[in-house]
C-alpha cells in the first residue's frame, strides 16, 4: 500500500484528477509490481517456475510497450486539437489507467490460480486469462473515464482524443501481446521467453484463419 494503490483507485492524493506533478515513479512501480504478480500467476500453468518468471517479466513489458508506442500520437493529437493546456491532466488519466489495469490484474492473480487448479485444459486456461485481461481493461477504463470526465465537460473535443487513444492502444496492445507470447505457456513445449516466430502479425494470422474457415 506504500505505493498508494488505494489513492490511485479512488483518484485521490497524488493521483487526484487534474494537473499537478505526475507521480511517475509510483505509477511505474505499480505497473511493475502489479504486472509481475499477475504474470507470475499466469505462468503457473503446469507448475513451471521458469515460465512463471518469464510471464511475470512480460506483463509489465506489454503494458509499457503499448503505452510508449501510442504516446507520441496522443501528444500530437492533443496539441493539434488545441487541448495542450490540459495535456498534463490527460496524461495523468492515461497513465493512471495503465496502473489501474496492473492493480486489477494483480487482484485477479488468485482467480487465475483457482482456474488452473480446477482445470488442466490449456484452452480453458487461455480463455480464463483472456476474460481477466478484459476485466482489467474495464477497470482501467473506469479510471480513464474518471480523469476525463471534467476534461470532456470543459471541452467535448477531449472525448475524441480519448476515443483515438483507446482505438490505437487496443490495436497496438493486441499485437504487442502476440509478439510477447507465450504468457500461459503450453505444457507440451519447453518454457520460453519468446516464441521463435515472434515477428509475425496477429491480425494477419486471425484474418487467414477466418478466411480459411470461410473457404472450407
Amino acid at each position: 500500500m506504500s505505493l498508494g494503490v488505494d489513492a490511485l483507485l479512488r483518484a485521490e492524493g497524488r493521483f487526484a484528477l487534474g494537473h499537478g506533478r505526475l507521480p511517475l515513479g509510483r505509477l511505474i512501480g505499480i505497473v511493475l509490481l502489479g504486472g509481475f504478480t499477475y504474470g507470475a500467476a499466469m505462468g503457473c500453468f503446469g507448475l513451471r517456475p521458469l515460465q512463471a518468471l518469464y510471464s511475470g517479466l512480460k506483463v509489465p513489458l506489454l503494458i509499457a510497450t503499448a503505452t510508449a508506442l501510442c504516446l507520441p500520437m496522443f501528444f500530437v493529437l492533443n496539441t493539434l486539437l488545441g487541448l495542450r493546456d490540459d495535456f498534463g491532466a490527460a496524461l495523468r488519466g492515461v497513465l493512471s489507467a495503465q496502473a489501474t489495469v496492473a492493480v486489477m490484474l494483480a487482484a485477479c492473480a488468485p482467480l487465475v490460480l483457482l482456474a488452473y487448479a480446477t482445470s488442466s485444459d490449456y484452452v480453458f486456461g487461455m480463455r480464463a486469462n483472456g476474460g481477466l485481461f478484459l476485466l482489467a481493461a474495464l477497470a482501467g477504463q473506469r479510471t480513464l473515464e474518471r480523469h476525463y470526465e471534467p476534461l470532456v465537460r470543459r471541452d467535448p473535443l477531449h472525448a475524441r482524443v480519448k476515443r483515438a487513444w483507446l482505438v490505437l492502444y487496443v490495436f497496438v496492445a493486441i499485437q504487442a501481446a502476440w509478439v510477447l507470447r507465450p504468457f500461459v505457456g503450453d505444457p507440451n513445449y519447453e518454457p520460453t521467453f519468446l516464441r521463435e516466430d515472434l515477428w509475425s502479425n496477429a491480425y494477419v494470422v486471425i484474418l487467414r484463419d477466418v478466411l480459411g474457415l470461410w473457404r472450407r
Binding site: 510508449a68 500530437v76 493529437l77 490495436f171 509478439v179 515477428w199 509475425s200
Partner: peptide, 14 residues
C-alpha cells in the same frame, strides 16, 4: 507521431 506504431508493425509483419 504514428511512425513508432508503423515501425513496430513492420517488425512483426511479413
Amino acid at each position: 507521431s504514428l511512425g513508432p506504431v508503423t515501425a513496430f508493425f513492420t517488425l512483426c509483419t511479413e
